[in-house]
Every structure is written in structure tokens, then in C-alpha cells.
Write a protein that binds this DNA or RNA. Structure first.
Length: 353
DNA sequence: ACGTCAGTAAACATAT
DNA sequence: TATATGTTTACTGACG
């Protein structure tokens, strides 16, 4: 007989919190920075390379939508966020339908209407709207509530979804509150720090993240080795609460955990945490999505050519980077011209058949 | 039919 | 101890 689970369900919405040290912050990389990066990679709006003569209606729509999206980006500072298109439900293949592009969602006028944004998008907007580009979960809640009254009366559980999203979505990263300074400090400092208070027990994640301390052009930071898998190395160690596998080394040098006495590992957790966006993880995620779709398209379009599915053309680093940047734009609600081109070529191939 | 994704619920762990 | 926060798993439905 399995023990009956006690209903340890927690009330999700009990308005106010007492303690909440607000130690957890979330930080998003700036959309504009994403734009910048893409611009540097020849993917920005001004460098859209669709030859005007050959633009089809659909692509024209995409172009318009691109500019619309840029307006959306510019409107992030506007707390009202009216008349914007959802950036979430558009994929790489289908052009935004009129239903999308014409949709003017006004949260104020439709307080009972569920916003057409995914939670990740909401979180992203919330963070992006914060001057410091970082927010504690609590403030994320509040931002969402402020801007989307729907959630005020929504069934509880959306906060759980927010947390779930923050935790699951690899583009949100938890780092120390004063991480920016922390990162800039020398490794020695960090090491001594670690020795002193030996890192928080459960700070998994990070490893090689480019921590976007404001304004810094982070693009030359080594492109994260964020293998999705490495995030889960903890699995087993969990039982021994003090020995979580992952460490919070955030940049290059490794502070070998072994250096630290096991005893010191007891209670450190002094560094408050914040979250940053791992742009590359995000890009890789989006890239996977894109590739999946391409694959599906190929599968459905070129059935006779099954081979093509298995032997995917090797991509050069440049290609990869372009796709990554494109993916960033995608997150920001901007469809990179790369996708247009891809679509066109795919379509062209299809039509040529 | 299948895989992927987002949303949701829930259990559980940890921090305050 | 209660609550907030964070992590993970499982399930579902939409979608291509």
C-alpha cells in the first residue's frame, strides 16, 4: 500500500508574501541587443535582401510584419502595450495571417480576454520592461497582473506556469543578484569568495553564460557551450542536498569544486540570485524548432527524396550563427529574412517540382 | 500517425 | 511552521 499522499498542494494565489527576500531576479538579454547582433550579421531590417522585384505578396506581408514587429519592440516601454501582434504563435513557415497581424489586443479593453502571448513572452516582456532588465518572480507576477488584468481573475495556477516556464525555459537564467560585478571581479576574487562561502547549494544552470552586464557587447564572449543536457546532471545528486552537481561558474575559469572543503559547503548561499537570458541556448532552441519544421516540410514535400532527410547538409559556422541570430530575432518577434529566404528557396524547390 | 511545443497540474525540495 | 520560490515530471491539446 503506497502511503496516501498528503495534499501538500499549496495555495497559489494568497496575495501577499511576507518574507520574500526578493533574492531571485530574472534578467533578459535586451531585445535591442538581439537586434544589434542580428544587424551585425546582416540580418537586420535594413539589410533585408529580398529583391524587390521578386517579392511576393506573402513576403511583402512578412516585410510589413517585420516592421510591425519592430514597432512592437519599440513599444516595450509602453506599459499599455496596445495594438501589438502576438509574437508567439508565428512560426517560421507560415506568414502571419491577417488574424494575427490585424489583431489588436488591448488588455485594458479586454480584461477578460486571455492575452495572445505565451508565458515565456509575457515573462520576457516583463523583464524587458524593467529598467534593470531583471525582475524577481514576484515582480513578474505583478507586471503581468498590471498589464493583463485577465490574470487577476484567472484561475490560480498561472503563477505556477510562470515559475515552470522560468525554470524550464533555458532562455531564462538564474544568476546572482550582483552577478555583473561578480563576474567582472577576478577569478581569484571569485575563488576566494567561493572558498569563503562556497556557492549556493542549488545553483545549477549557468556554465559559460555570457552575462550581459549592461551595454557590454557580449557577442565576443565565447558562444556558450550550453549543451541542453548538462543542465540535468544533477539528477541523482539531489538526494544529498549538499552535493548538487552543477556549479555556478558563470564564465570561463573553473573554480574547481574540489578545492572547497566539504564542510564549507554547508551554508553559503549568500550571493543573491538573478536570472539572465542565455541567448545562445535560446537560439539553439529556436534553431532546433526551425530545423524540425524544415525537416517536416522536407518530409512532406519531398517524399521520394528520403535521403535528404538523413543527410542534412552540413552547416558552416557562419550559417549556424546566422540562424542563431535569426532565432534571436524570432524571439523578439522579428522574422529574420533568413527564414524568408529559406522559405522561398524551399518553396521554389517545391514549385519547381 | 507522429513529433514538438506550450500550457497545466502536481509533487517535491529548498529558502525565508 | 507557513509561505514563496524553484525544479521536475506527467499529461493534454494544438499544430505542422
Amino acid at each position: 500500500m503506497g502511503p496516501v499522499m498528503p495534499p501538500s498542494k499549496k495555495p497559489e494565489s494568497s496575495g501577499v508574501s511576507v518574507a520574500s527576500g526578493l533574492s531571485q531576479f530574472y534578467q533578459a538579454s535586451s531585445i535591442t541587443r538581439a537586434l544589434q547582433e542580428a544587424e551585425e550579421m546582416d540580418l537586420a531590417l535594413p539589410t533585408i535582401k529580398l529583391e524587390k522585384g521578386s517579392i511576393e505578396d506573402e513576403e511583402l506581408t512578412n516585410l510589413n510584419w517585420l516592421h510591425e514587429s519592430k514597432n512592437l519592440l519599440n513599444s516595450f516601454g509602453d506599459p499599455v502595450l496596445r495594438s501589438v501582434s502576438p509574437v508567439q504563435d508565428l512560426d517560421d513557415d507560415t506568414p502571419p495571417s491577417p488574424a494575427h497581424s490585424d489583431l489588436a489586443y488591448d488588455a485594458k479593453q479586454n480584461p477578460n480576454c486571455k492575452p495572445p502571448y505565451s508565458f515565456s513572452c509575457l515573462i520576457f516582456m516583463a523583464i524587458e520592461d524593467a529598467p534593470s532588465k531583471r525582475l524577481p518572480v514576484k515582480d513578474i507576477y505583478n507586471w503581468i497582473l498590471d498589464h493583463f488584468p485577465y490574470f487577476a481573475n484567472a484561475p490560480t495556477g498561472w503563477k505556477n506556469s510562470v515559475r515552470h516556464n522560468l525554470s524550464l525555459n533555458k532562455c531564462f537564467k538564474k544568476v546572482d543578484k550582483d552577478r555583473s560585478q561578480y563576474v567582472q571581479s577576478s577569478n581569484l576574487a571569485r575563488k576566494s569568495l567561493l572558498q569563503k562561502k562556497q556557492g549556493s547549494p542549488a545553483t545549477r544552470s549557468v556554465l559559460g553564460y555570457r552575462l550581459t552586464s549592461d551595454g557590454e557587447p557580449t557577442r565576443n564572449s565565447p558562444l556558450v557551450s550550453s549543451d541542453p543536457k548538462e543542465d540535468h546532471t544533477y539528477s541523482f545528486a539531489k538526494s544529498s542536498s549538499s552535493d548538487v552537481g552543477e556549479e555556478a561558474h558563470c564564465d570561463g575559469s573553473e573554480v574547481d569544486e574540489a578545492d572547497v572543503e566539504e564542510d564549507d559547503k554547508s551554508k553559503i548561499k549568500k550571493e543573491p540570485k538573478e536570472w539572465s537570458v542565455d541567448a545562445l541556448a535560446l537560439a539553439q532552441h529556436k534553431k532546433r524548432q526551425h530545423l524540425t519544421k524544415v525537416k517536416q516540410r522536407v518530409a512532406s514535400d519531398t517524399l521520394p527524396l528520403k535521403k535528404r532527410r538523413t543527410e542534412k547538409p552540413p552547416e558552416s559556422d557562419d550559417e549556424e550563427m546566422k540562424e542563431a541570430a535569426g532565432s534571436l530575432l524570432h524571439l523578439a518577434g522579428v522574422r529574420a529574412c533568413l527564414n524568408n529566404i529559406t522559405n522561398r528557396t524551399a518553396k521554389g524547390q517545391k514549385e519547381q517540382k
